[in-house]
Simulated scan of single mutants.
Amino acid sequence: MRFRPCIDIHNGSVKQIVGSSLSDAGNKAEDNFVSQKGGGYYAALYKEHGLKGGHIIILNPEGSEYYGADLETAYDALKEYPGGLQIGGGINDGNAGRFLDKGASHVIVTSFVFKGGIINYDNLGKINKAVGRQRLVLDLSCRKKDGRYFIVTDRWQKFTDTELTLETMKELSEWCDEFLIHAVDVEGKASGIEDYVAGLIGAFSEIPVTYAGGIHSFEDIQKLRDISQSRSDYTIGSALDIFGGSLSFEEVCSRFND
């Protein structure tokens, strides 16, 4: 169970947002924290602490007026820590190689694979061929609807018809190296973890999985460890003191990281 740090980029800045508030219209989001430091600062911090496999997420679409600034911030991070960070946000078979060339260890993909609300196997095959299974992470971020959890796309704004289940995870694990799962309904709210998602990860053992969403205390980390049977790596965002929260980054690095 390892701590996987994050660098979320929105409107050109490193931020922590409430995930469910994100909207492409007007480039809006409810901010928890807006950093005065760039992506390179956080990448250097993670490198200093030996934290590998963290992720950069670009939260503006490619057509946004802020996308160029997002890329600059992301590239600064990749340059500072080559091979140490994954990157996601608008990745497809045409641009994935650019991010790998800039130093990303993996690319993270959702919307390109879940076109039209279902698994698009043509696109899944294209991105798999473009980067290789060993450098592909599938983001299975989910939201709850009618008592069930469905994968969401387009920066968590659109529900797909694909339910997040153990069967879905097992099927998709044949195509990629890891999963990243944001529990979007609790993302950025520091309100505790989604037990169902943690339980799914605990029942799954094919490839590594990183859980993100709601962690705001060491009790939450221990709960995730217990429910997932120590099979889940984890991300903490706005609860960390480096992002304006109260949870010590230094202490997180020294605990629950085995």
Rank of each mutant, 00 (worst) to 15 (best):
V197E: 10
L59M: 10
P61G: 02
E206M: 14
E194N: 15
E206G: 11
K52V: 09
Q36W: 05
V152P: 04
E251G: 00
C176A: 14
H182E: 05
K189Q: 12
G26K: 12
D70L: 03
Q16P: 01
D233Y: 08
M1H: 03
S246L: 03
G192S: 13
R133Y: 04
G63R: 06
G94M: 07
I118V: 15
A104M: 06
K15I: 15
R4S: 03
R231P: 12
G39D: 10
G50L: 09
I91E: 03
E65T: 07
D177Y: 13
I236S: 02
N32L: 12
A77G: 09
H10S: 01
L136W: 02
E178F: 09
E80G: 07
F179C: 13
A96Y: 01
L85N: 03
P61H: 07
G90R: 02
E30D: 14
A104S: 13
A25K: 14
F3R: 02
E174C: 04
V209C: 15
S173W: 04
D101C: 01
H106N: 14
T160V: 07
Q229I: 08
G132C: 07
F150H: 04
K189I: 04
I91Y: 04
C6T: 06
Y81W: 08
I87Y: 01
G26E: 12
I127W: 06
G84E: 05
N120L: 07
K102R: 15
R2M: 06
K144G: 06
G103V: 05
C142Y: 01
I118H: 13
E65I: 11
R148D: 09
Y234D: 08
E251H: 00
V113W: 01
A44T: 15
F150E: 06
A212K: 08
E171H: 10
A130D: 10
S246W: 01
I201E: 09
E194K: 08
H106C: 14
L124A: 12
F99E: 02
I119C: 13
C142E: 06
G103H: 06
M1I: 01
E80Y: 02
L138I: 15
A74V: 03
I201K: 14
E65D: 15
V131H: 09
L100K: 03
F99A: 01
N257K: 01
L59N: 01
L78A: 06
A183R: 03
T165L: 14
G40S: 14
D258Y: 00
D101P: 00
V184F: 05
D195G: 04
T165Y: 10
F204H: 14
F218K: 11
S35E: 09
N60W: 00
I108C: 11
A183K: 04
S246V: 02
N11A: 08
V109N: 05
K126D: 10
Y196W: 10
D146C: 09
N123I: 10
G26L: 11
E30I: 06
D185G: 10
K28W: 04
S238T: 11
N128M: 12
Q134L: 12
E65P: 14
L71V: 09
